[in-house]
Structure formats: structure tokens, C-alpha cells
Design a protein around this nucleic acid. Structure first.
Lengths: 269, 269
DNA sequence: TCAAAAACGATCAAATGTAATCATATTGCG
DNA sequence: CGCAATATGATTACATTTGATCGTTTTTGA
């Protein structure tokens, strides 16, 4: 990966949270600790970020960031490493120039880091995703219209949106509350409605969920398994669950095995 | 393959991603490393791209051609004080609970500072305005859908947007390139189209322009004077121009008098 | 307070990128 | 055609970047 690309990713990572650790950036860029340190040092003298022990932070005061209603940022750090691995695998499915849809969510948000060096038409209903891509990438960003719901940082509209209906994508990426034999499950009827509209605009549906979601059920079904092209999850998935997907003709990608895995086992000899 | 062809391919490659490597271009053109390096060097001195270690990058971020005007960031600082005064007067017209539309622009952007403690439904097509209001206020923010144009930070869509058509506002606030006897003038046809859609959704049109705009003309007319309810400008406005507005039944607010001075001529409740 | 863990910086070898040179096409033109 | 000018590709030596190692410093937590 080129120096410039790393720098982009690093700057992008630093924006997302108060302080980004060296390890996280190693994860993000697939390069060594030494290189990241050198990059941080360089960006520091360029005054593009501030170097701190353990990593780096954005120059601009992140004072307000947490204020303006964000259960988002709390969620954001849960299982961050796992989510990143899943998001990376998702981003690797994309090809430059190929239009995609990214539905809002904490896992899908992680994709932004892996899209900083891409050039694709990206449609999203997530304000933070749009914001990040706008500021840290050269992708063409398209947003759905409507009211911005602060809790979820999602844009919803009770009305039909011709922008949405005229955007066609190769793939749509989304998270969910649960995934079972009956299909993809979501908790909120409003969300369901919005997501269903989007799903119709893409050839392939790619679902990003950590493995715990296989055991979680919700009340509302968004779509059946047959509509799902690919599921990306972590290695906590059980054989039974994998078989269920296989049986429904869903491709399965288990992220976090090959590259960028950090030992997080609580076991110790 | 001829030099020109390679150059075309190289320039195109460089547009696709932040940085294109020499190897990639070798693959693309089926020529040798040495040749690509020489090409890059040549294009570099021609200022058609920037040479970086490992390859080359585009020198300017992609701009959406067709939208006239300076980038937002440049415009932003011109006459900031005057714009602020005008924006403050505009914000003072608003009442809590009363829905408004704010069209994107550098002057209207200044309104956000005076709206932080308000609670209104606010519809905008400006990404930065939405962002600021979202982070620094408790207003209900609604956004139009479409592509985000980076230069102007405006969201535009060639398609109709039912979100827009279903939002009704007491007032719409907007800037413009010029204002003359024929009406409100704008430079870009795309902008015109989007703005006209919005204008239809509001009872009263409030125009925010600094006084220099009275002497500036543009090629496209957005709407006639009769459609304008109120003009807010600074005290550089000339009598002749004030009379023109008066004659057309347009209310005039002159902002930017000494701080603390409460008198504001032609003020309507 | 002390010891383990984590972060850091320096150093070096390997990988990668660059510049210079020269030999070999290819082109333009009298 | 033949000659010169130019463009291209291969080889070489050189420079930079990167990742691993190791000893030191800082932080953490008992």
C-alpha cells in the first residue's frame, strides 16, 4: 500500500474517535507498527494530526462530537476489531467504479476506512457515513433525503424518494439485528420499510453481522434468506448456522482469519 | 502504443484512485517501467499530474464540472462579518416551531450560529448546514436527497424528490449571485432548477445578499421581484436600489449597523 | 513500590522504487 | 534508401521505504 493511501486511512481513522491507536491503524492498513509510527510522525510534523502516546488524535477539538446525541459512538467501540475485520472483507468485494449502497449501522460504518482510497458511486442513508466519505475520500457520495434521526444517525422519509429509486447498485451492504432460518431480522418497522426500499435497488444483498447475531431473534422479518447473496461474519459462527446458510444458497465469508487478526482470547496458560 | 495513448491512459488511471502505481500503469499500457517513468516525468512538468514516489496522483481533487462558482471553502471567508450580520437578522425572523427552508450558500450558512438554541423543523440542501445543526443544535433537520457536490457542498438531484415536495415552510432563506429589477439571479442552471423547486414549498421568500450583489448581474433569472417577500442586506445598499425593492413591494431589512443599536429600518414584525 | 506489559526509538537487512546508461527499435525526412 | 532523431526497453547501480529485532522508557495494576 502506498504511503499516501496509508496517510488517508490514518487521517480518516483519527477523525472517527478521540484517539486512534497504532494497533488499530496497523489493522486498517495491513502494515507494520514501525511504518505506522513513521507515518504518524510525518503527519505530526505536517500538522495534519497530533501525535500522542499510543496513537494519534485529530487536531480539531473533538469536544462536541460526543455531545450531539450519539448512542452511536458508544456502540461504535463494541467489538471494534471484529467489526473492522468484517467491514474489511465487505470492502474487498467492491470494485472501483462499481456503484454500491451502504445502509447505516455501526458495522457498515467501519467500511468507510477501507473505502478512502476508492472511487465509486456510493449511496447511503447514513449521515456519518456520508460525512466521512465526503471528507476523507474521493468517492461520489449520494444521500437519501428525509429527516435525520439523531439516535441512529439515519435519514428516513415517509415519502418515496426518487433519488433512491433511480440509483442502481451492484451490491447493497447492511447490518441487521438478527439472522435466522426465516431470514434477516430487524427491530424497527420504520427501518424495515426504508431498508426494503433500498434492497430493491441492488443486485446482490451483502449482510454484515457478527456471529452473536445468529442467536439473536427479532420480531420483524426484513427479507428471506433467498434474497441474501452473501453473509460476512466472524469465526464465532457455528457449523449448524453455516449449514443453514449453505442450504439456502448464501455465500459465507468468515472474516478475521487470514489477515489482521489480533489475539483477543481471554484464555491464558 | 503511442505516447499520447499512454498519456491518456495514465491520466485516466490517476483519476480513478488517489495514487496510481507505476506497476499498474505498466500493466495498463503494456510498456516498460522506464517508459512509464518518463511519461510521468513529462506529465509532471506539464502539470497534468503530480509525481509521487511509487507512481503518480491527480493534482486536484475531482471537481464536478458544470457548477459555477468558487469552492465553498474559499467563499466562506469573504465578507464574513457582513454575512454574519445579515444572517443574524435572518435568524431573528424565525420563530420556534415554525418550519423553514435554508438553501445552501455561504451567507445562509452563517445562520446556523444563530439557530443553535432554537427548535424548528429545518429543511436544507446544504450538507454543512445540516451537519452543523445536527451537531450543535436540537432542531429537527431534514435533508434533500441526491448527489453531494463537493465544491459547493450542496446536494442536488436530477430527480424529483418527494421529501422536498412534502415539506412546507413558512419561510425560505436563500442567497443569490445578483439581484436586479428583473429579479433574483443565479449563475448555474442546475442550481436554479433545484432552488426553484424549493421556493415553491415556502410561503415567503427571504433573500440574503450583501449590497455588492445589487450591482452584479448574472445570466439566469431565478424568479421575479414579486416573488420575494423580504431582502436582507448591509448598509451599502443605495437609495435607488432600496426604492426598486420598495416599488416591487419587497420588505427591506438593513443589517450590520453598530452592535447594540436596536433600530432596524423597515422592520416588519 | 515493584514487576509485567505496552509503547517507543534505533538499527539493519530486505524489498521496493529511481536514475543513469546503453543498446535497440521506430519514425521522419532529404 | 539511408541517416539522424527520437522513443523504448533492459541492465545496472543507487536511494528510499518497510518490517523485524532489541534494548530502553513509560504505563499499568497488583
Amino acid at each position: 500500500m502506498h504511503e499516501k493511501e496509508r496517510h488517508r486511512i490514518i487521517l480518516s481513522a483519527v477523525q472517527e474517535k478521540p484517539v486512534a491507536t497504532v494497533q488499530e491503524m496497523v489493522d486498517l492498513t495491513d502494515s507494520s507498527e514501525a511504518t505506522i509510527r513513521r507515518d504518524i510522525a510525518a503527519l505530526h510534523v505536517q500538522k495534519r494530526l497530533r501525535r500522542v502516546r499510543g496513537g494519534a488524535e485529530a487536531l480539531s477539538p473533538p469536544s462536541f462530537v460526543g455531545l450531539a446525541g450519539r448512542p452511536f459512538s458508544v456502540n461504535e467501540t463494541i467489538n471494534a476489531a471484529q467489526k473492522r475485520a468484517i467491514a474489511r472483507a465487505a470492502a474487498e468485494l467492491c470494485k472501483d467504479g462499481e456503484p454500491i449502497i451502504i445502509n447505516g449501522g455501526t458495522t457498515t460504518f467501519q467500511m468507510v476506512h477501507f473505502l478512502t482510497n476508492r472511487r465509486m458511486p456510493i449511496f447511503t442513508n447514513s449521515f456519518p457515513i456520508a460525512e466521512h466519505l465526503l471528507k476523507h475520500s474521493k468517492n461520489t457520495v449520494m444521500l437519501s433525503g428525509g429527516t435525520i434521526y439523531r439516535e441512529q444517525n439515519i435519514i428516513l422519509s415517509p415519502f418515496d424518494n426518487d433519488v433512491t429509486r433511480n440509483f442502481y447498485a451492484r451490491r447493497m451492504f447492511m447490518g441487521a439485528q438478527g439472522l435466522g432460518p426465516l431470514g434477516l431480522m430487524e427491530g424497527d418497522p420504520l427501518l424495515i420499510q426504508a431498508e426494503q426500499k433500498l434492497v430493491d435497488q441492488a443486485d446482490e444483498l451483502v449482510v454484515l453481522i457478527d456471529s452473536s447475531k445468529f442467536r439473536r431473534r427479532s420480531s420483524l422479518i426484513l427479507c428471506g434468506l433467498s434474497r441474501i447473496a452473501t453473509v460476512i461474519t466472524d469465526d464465532g459462527i457455528e457449523d449448524r448456522e453455516a449449514k443453514m446458510l449453505e442450504g439456502a444458497g448464501v455465500a459465507l465469508i468468515v472474516a478475521g482469519k487470514a489477515a489482521g487478526e489480533l489475539e483477543e482470547s481471554s484464555l491464558q496458560a
